[in-house]
Design a protein around this nucleic acid. Structure first.
Lengths: 204, 204
DNA sequence: CGGCTGGCCTAACACAGTTTGAAGAGTGGC
DNA sequence: GCCACTCTTCAAACTGTGTTAGGCCAGCCG
């Protein structure tokens, strides 16, 4: 009476190969650029031919989609790790949130392109892959609210501000810090605008 | 003794055809998307076949390049038209500059993609096409300086802020005004931060 | 009138993503 | 232990892309 086997070896191997494919795709994207990624390249890197990939992903965009999901899920776990270390002071807290996002975005250009820009023609993330992105935004929204940034408009302004700095940095000074240097100042500007008290919270 | 003919009819026709190609390319880019533009489509729209375009442009990217130059040159002439109407008040002046750019960017998605985002894989604008873009930035720098926004860092922050709003608007609410509504508020935030006096200049 | 150039074409190439159909490898049932 | 069946992989081929090669024809110039 052994009953059902406790593991599905086939599914495990399938999943392992999927991850292998994605890892290869990330390598190539980082090396040669996100758009320069080729199915034949990805396949060869793991000892396959291009058509074999179609046993694991329905299309090239499905690979991008899985990468998109991975990137946002990774960021979610990063947030989880950072969360307990967030400063109590509202202003420093907002700064920490901004820095976390900024650094993550700047650390990997291909990843940032995929996560935050519409640089792949025809690629639209699926709802499943988009879910962690929404979760991240929701999480950010809660934290910001806790620090006194409330209302959709203020959150929208915050995201646009940080996003603008990241994009400017990546587009005009890749690898440098011309806009990275402005981040703290920008957050102070924002914090003053929405009435977040300075480091020792005495205001309002 | 007629001497040299005063017009080069051949060059004139060549230039006219070039413009015709670019006009067709803009139409298709607006219709189907910038990246979905196809040489065969462009050619057919003006009664040609794809290879014939190579008599006028060295490559597809050369067409993108010419479009890039056109877009920035058009914006430059728009600036020239707007310049005399700029308000005297520094704060309103900065707002006018921001609105001019924002509206121009939002008015044509394909154009914005080409001008301000790196959405076409492998496309890098040539120095000639980039020149008007630099000229625009230089012009903006001068105006901002006149309104009291001085120093590279402040200008960088300004461009990042406006760019972030435009990108957020285009990426997350195409055709809407969710971020457009925030523009004035964002400029006020910025103006306060860099010490631009309110509408009737009494401050600082 | 003869040659030359410019403008446009067809045919073809290289290289994408993708589909098809078949052969090999692994797995499970009897 | 063997058979059937599924999963995995591949070669070949298809479509659609940018691009190149080579040829045809009109118009201009000597």
């Amino acid at each position: 009476m052994l009953g059902q086997p406790t593991r599905d070896r086939q599914a495990e191997r399938q999943e392992a190969t999927r991850l292998e494919i994605l890892a290869a795709a990330w390598e190539i994207a980082r090396d040669k650029g996100l758009a320069e990624l080729t199915l034949r390249d990805v396949a060869f890197r793991i000892g396959m031919r291009a058509p074999s990939l179609y046993s694991y992903f329905g299309s090239k965009n499905a690979i991008y989609d899985a990468m998109f999901g991975q990137a946002w899920t990774d960021y979610l776990t990063l947030i989880n790790a950072v969360e307990p270390t967030l400063p109590r002071s509202p202003r420093d807290g907002v700064k920490a949130i901004a820095h976390t996002f900024f650094d993550y975005a700047v650390a990997d250009h291909a990843r940032h392109q995929l996560m935050n820009q519409r640089t792949i023609p025809g690629f639209v993330p699926s709802p499943e892959s988009y879910a962690p992105a929404i979760e991240v935004l929701e999480r950010a929204r809660r934290h910001l609210a806790r620090f006194g940034v409330q209302g959709n408009e203020r959150v929208d302004l915050f995201t646009a501000l940080i996003g603008g700095l990241v994009d400017a940095q990546q587009a005009n000074d890749l690898g440098g810090d011309r806009w990275a240097r402005l981040l703290d100042d920008a957050i102070d500007m924002f914090a003053n605008h929405v009435g977040i008290p300075k480091t020792t919270g005495r205001g309002s």
